[in-house]
Each structure stands twice: as structure tokens, then as C-alpha cells.
């Protein structure tokens, strides 16, 4: 049965179904409902919730819990994610799985609390130090906030790597129907974890490799697993792309506005289609190339000054003209505004 739920709350409910029983976080708008829901729900199902003294502490608590082999998560927004970067680098370096939610808001600095998509570089390209990747998922609805959270736990465990739910203030704050199955997942056993048992006594979780060759070997191993993820995990959604002449590309809340834009454009006889990346890393480049090969123009729309567009351009490598339209500061473009952008760019302005 469907229940109404906020995006931020859906994340927590799904985490519990994914077998996660540990949440360490610090409040920040527009992500606070994640911590609040975790504080309310986790202790009732035998889980741990701690409001840490900072996001620095929170991510290191996540590190400790992940090392102990439990499914663990945290959530925050831009400023908090900035503080978590060191810890996320350590998590990746020590190959520890966890799920981190970034409900993006306006930046840089304190910015504002309205939605932006300006943490793309930080999350997708890796905001911490060193060679590593985050697995990044981009939900666009409350239902997906839940589904992607469950998927993120699986991917994090599969690749022993942090997985990020990258979303924005609108998706976090909005309410929609949520359908959850009464089917709780038993998290996988992690023989590599340090659990204070005779069997795990010999285990070591560390990111320090003093010898240059050792560190190189460690990184090559990480690279190999990232290559595997790149093969197996890209996900995307296509809408009305079969006969599309102009392809609109956007993720998260923008993809929702773009879907309405595509429908509005089609009513006016413009053959528009939507390409919505679901995984931002690994980026669904192959599918994008296939889809875009048939169109005349690609328009990337973001709530940023042009971050994801770099991955679109990398993928298409000059084969199709790629244009960009961005709004920042917390402004979200309207359907009419985007319709106009497309019409002008297609030289079909009415």
C-alpha cells in the first residue's frame, strides 16, 4: 500500500529495509529530516542513532561502523559534505562500504538552502584527496529516494566503496506516494570486517601503504574494481527518445521539469526526448552515445554553472553539438522557460 512520505524520510525507511541499523549525522537544511527520521525510527528497530558533534565526527563514526561490518549511513548537505570529504577518502582508501546522502543546496560557502546541483564535481569526481571514486545515484522522486538507497547499500557492499545518494532540496523536501515492500534484506556477511572475534582477529582495515609499490598495487586493485563497476552498473532512463531530434539531459529534480518540458514540446510538434542519468558515477556514457547519435542537438540542463555537462561532452566527444543551460542560486527553471530555451536553440522560436 502506498503511503505519503517526504524524500528525506523515504531514505531512512529504505535504509532500515536494507538492513541498515546505524546512522551517524549532523543536522543541516534541507537534509535534517533524514537525521530526524533516523533518530525516530532506528532506535525502535534496535538500531543506533547518534547526532555527532560535527560532520567530521559523523563520517568517522561511519568509518568505524563500516569497519565493524555493519550497514551504516549518514546524510547532509553541501557544507556538511565538504567536512566529510577527508573521511570519504579514508573510507574509499580502506575499502569500506557506506551510504552517504547529499541533499544539495545553494553554494559556495553558506550559500542558501534552496536546491542546487552544484556538488556534482565534489561527489562524482571525488571531493577528497587521492585516487578514488564514489558510486553516485541520482533519485528524482520519493519512490526513487527509497529504491536508490537500497541499491546504494548493495553497490557499496559489492564494491566495498562509499555510495552517494546525490539529490537536491526539492526531492528531499517533497512528499509523494511511497510503496515499500515488507521485505527486509539480510545484509551480507563481511569476512573482512573487524568484529572483535577470533575469526576476524587477523583483519586490518587501513588506508596507509608506506611502500610506493604497495600503494600502487592497492590503487591498481581499486582501479580494477572501478572498471568492473563501469561495465556493470551504469543506469539511465529514456523518455520519448525513439524519434527525438533534440535530446534533453538532466538528473534529479531537473529531469522532472524536463519530462514536463518534453511533453509540452511534443504538443507543439517538437520531437524532444529526455535522457536521465540514474547513476552519475559510473556515468551511463554508452547509452548516452547510442541515444544521442540519432539527434541533432543535445541540451544539458542543470542547477549549476555546468558540471555534469562535462561528462556529456566527454561521452559524446564532439559527435553531437552539446549545449548547456543552467540556473543557480536556488532557482529552478520552469517548463515554459525550458521550452523557450529549446525552441530558440532549435531555431524554431515562436
Amino acid at each position: 500500500m502506498r503511503q505519503l512520505c517526504k524524500g528525506n524520510v523515504a531514505v531512512v525507511k529504505a535504509a532500515i529495509l536494507a538492513g541498515c541499523r546505524a546512522y551517524y549525522g549532523y543536522p543541516i537544511t534541507p537534509a535534517s529530516e533524514i537525521a530526524e527520521a533516523a533518530a525516530l525510527y532506528f532506535p525502535q528497530v534496535g538500531g543506533t542513532f547518534i547526532q555527532a558533534e560535527s560532520e567530521v565526527a559523523a563520517i568517522n563514526m561511519v568509518y568505524g561502523a563500516a569497519a565493524a561490518g555493519v550497514r551504516v549511513m549518514s546524510g547532509s548537505s553541501g557544507p556538511g559534505l565538504s567536512l566529510m570529504q577527508e573521511g570519504m577518502s579514508y573510507l574509499a582508501g580502506s575499502e569500506l562500504p557506506c551510504v552517504i546522502v547529499d541533499v544539495m543546496r545553494g553554494g559556495p560557502g553558506l550559500g542558501n538552502i534552496a536546491p542546487e546541483q552544484s556538488d556534482y564535481f565534489a561527489m562524482v569526481k571525488g571531493g577528497g584527496h587521492g585516487n578514488y571514486r564514489n558510486i553516485v545515484l541520482a533519485p528524482a522522486s520519493v519512490q526513487e529516494m527509497a529504491e536508490h538507497t537500497m541499491l546504494a547499500f548493495d553497490l557499496a557492499d559489492k564494491y566495498r566503496n562509499p555510495a552517494v545518494i546525490l539529490t537536491d532540496g526539492f526531492v528531499g523536501q517533497m512528499m509523494e506516494p511511497l510503496e515499500l515492500e515488507d521485505n527486509e534484506i539480510q545484509p551480507p556477511d563481511k569476512p573482512w570486517a573487524v568484529k572483535g572475534t577470533p575469526e576476524t582477529r587477523a583483519n586490518l582495515l587501513s588506508s596507509i601503504y608506506l611502500e610506493t609499490d604497495e600503494l600502487e598495487e592497492h590503487q591498481r586493485r581499486m582501479e580494477a574494481k572501478y572498471m568492473r563497476a563501469q561495465e556493470a552498473e551504469p543506469r539511465c532512463e529514456l523518455c520519448h527518445t525513439e524519434d527525438a531530434e533534440v535530446l534533453l539531459v538532466g538528473y534529479g529534480i531537473v529531469s522532472r521539469v524536463l519530462l514536463s518540458t518534453v511533453e509540452a514540446l511534443r504538443k507543439e510538434g517538437v520531437k524532444a526526448g529526455l535522457f536521465r542519468p540514474i547513476t552519475l558515477w559510473p556515468y551511463p556514457s554508452k547509452a548516452l552515445v547510442e541515444t544521442a547519435s540519432k539527434v541533432q542537438k543535445v541540451l544539458v540542463v542543470e542547477l549549476s554553472n555546468g558540471q555534469m555537462v562535462e561528462d556529456v561532452r566527454l561521452a559524446l566527444n564532439g559527435k553531437v553539438p552539446v549545449e548547456f543551460y543552467g540556473r543557480v542560486g536556488g532557482n529552478v527553471p520552469s517548463v515554459t522557460e525550458l521550452q523557450q530555451q529549446v525552441l530558440t536553440r532549435m531555431a524554431l522560436a515562436v
Binding site: N60, M61, Y63, G64, Y90, G196, S206
Partner: peptide
């Protein structure tokens, strides 16, 4: 014993 290496200053959080 079981060993976990943590970031500078963060051992109590870990």
C-alpha cells in the same frame, strides 16, 4: 588483535 587505522584525530569517533 582486530585493527582499524583511522584519520588524524578521529580515533574516538571511529
Amino acid at each position: 588483535v582486530g585493527n582499524v587505522q583511522s584519520a588524524h584525530g578521529r580515533a574516538p569517533a571511529a
